[in-house]
């Protein structure tokens, strides 16, 4: 204690210490991560972009420095490929809408749960569902939705159907799988914003004579618009780039862009064209982000 008091006399030296802390030696802290990202993130993505413009030669990976637009022309001229792009966008858009419709009530419910223990419990459920490997969840979904699966089994037992309903290995299955995949992301983007809406706003609407339904649609829902926009955008971006869900739940009948990428590389050895599809996939999701943010700036009224 006496030591501490004695040392307090040194306090005026503080700016000096601050200078030492901000010493250039601090740069050594960021250097490893910076170099790591430069070598293994920047260089690979830039070279992937470059080879997507390179002359297409099956089995050749190296950059040949023979740039052309042929790969992109091929992509937009073959219905096989541009239809996959349209299918990807359509699938992701449908999934975004369904996930919002399903995720909003859950987010609202969790946000309005005041009991701290129960609230934490719901958050752990949502976070665990999000962090669990998607392939494991797909196992569950496929056992549930197959022709001899649990749902068809129950329906057959109660005599509702004779022939099994085609629940998966089709577009419907891919939608269900992606909704299951993206639901936690939607819920987490919504909870924060719903929680931040002050209840006095809802109470004011109620006291002015609005019923619950009107209050929800006129007050709560519009005020949660920034979360809705962020959530649907995130869900769209995750859905459009998912490989494993369309591959398993679509049964190779719902051919989207990520499946084409894998086929071009792993099965045909067409590196340049695979890179082209990857670039188209990335640019498509970036365009979606851009359009959405333009739209969001107008609707969210500065809350985004």
């Amino acid at each position: 204690m006496a030591l501490a008091t004695a040392q307090a006399g040194h306090m005026p030296q503080l700016p000096d210490v601050r200078r030492i802390l901000a010493d250039s030696r601090l740069y050594w802290l960021v250097l490893p991560a910076f170099v790591f990202f430069l070598i293994f993130f920047v260089i690979p993505t830039v070279s992937l972009f470059l080879i997507s413009f390179d002359k297409s030669v099956a089995g050749v990976v190296d950059i040949q420095w023979d740039f052309t637009l042929k790969n992109y022309i091929r992509f937009f001229n073959r219905s096989l490929y541009y239809e996959a792009a349209i299918r990807s966008i359509g699938l992701a858009a449908i999934v975004s809408v369904v996930t919002l419709a399903l995720g909003y009530p859950l987010a609202y419910f969790v946000a309005k749960t005041r009991h701290p223990g129960r609230n934490t419990f719901y958050m752990i459920l949502v976070l665990s569902a999000m962090q669990l490997d998607m392939v494991i969840r797909l196992f569950g979904l496929m056992v549930l939705m197959g022709d001899n699966g649990v749902i068809n089994g129950i329906l057959r037992d109660i005599g509702a159907i004779r022939e099994p309903l085609p629940l998966m290995y089709n577009f419907f299955g891919a939608v269900v799988g992606l909704v299951q995949f993206t639901l936690p992301f939607m819920v987490l983007s919504l909870i924060g914003i719903i929680r931040s809406i002050h209840p006095s706003l809802e109470e004011a609407a109620r006291s002015l004579g609005a019923n619950r339904w009107t209050t929800f649609w006129r007050i709560t829902f519009p005020l949660s618009m920034p979360g809705i926009l962020a959530g649907t955008l995130l869900v769209f971006a995750i859905s459009i780039s998912s490989y494993v869900v369309p591959a398993l739940m679509g049964g190779w009948k719902v051919i989207v862009m990520p499946l084409h990428i894998y086929q071009q590389i792993a099965e045909m050895g067409k590196w340049q064209f695979g890179a082209t599809i990857a670039v188209v996939l990335f640019v498509t999701s970036m365009i979606a982000v851009y359009i959405y943010q333009r739209f969001a700036a107008r609707t969210a009224g500065g809350r985004a």
Binding site: P105, Y108, F109, F216
Partner: peptide, 23 residues
């Protein structure tokens, strides 16, 4: 939480957790 929203929330919980229970 109003009843329609509660029903929606439980439906979402089922979608979220049923596949895990099935595994």
């Amino acid at each position: 939480v109003a009843l329609p929203l509660q029903i929606g929330a439980w439906l979402a919980f089922v979608v979220l957790l049923l596949p895990v229970v099935i595994v």
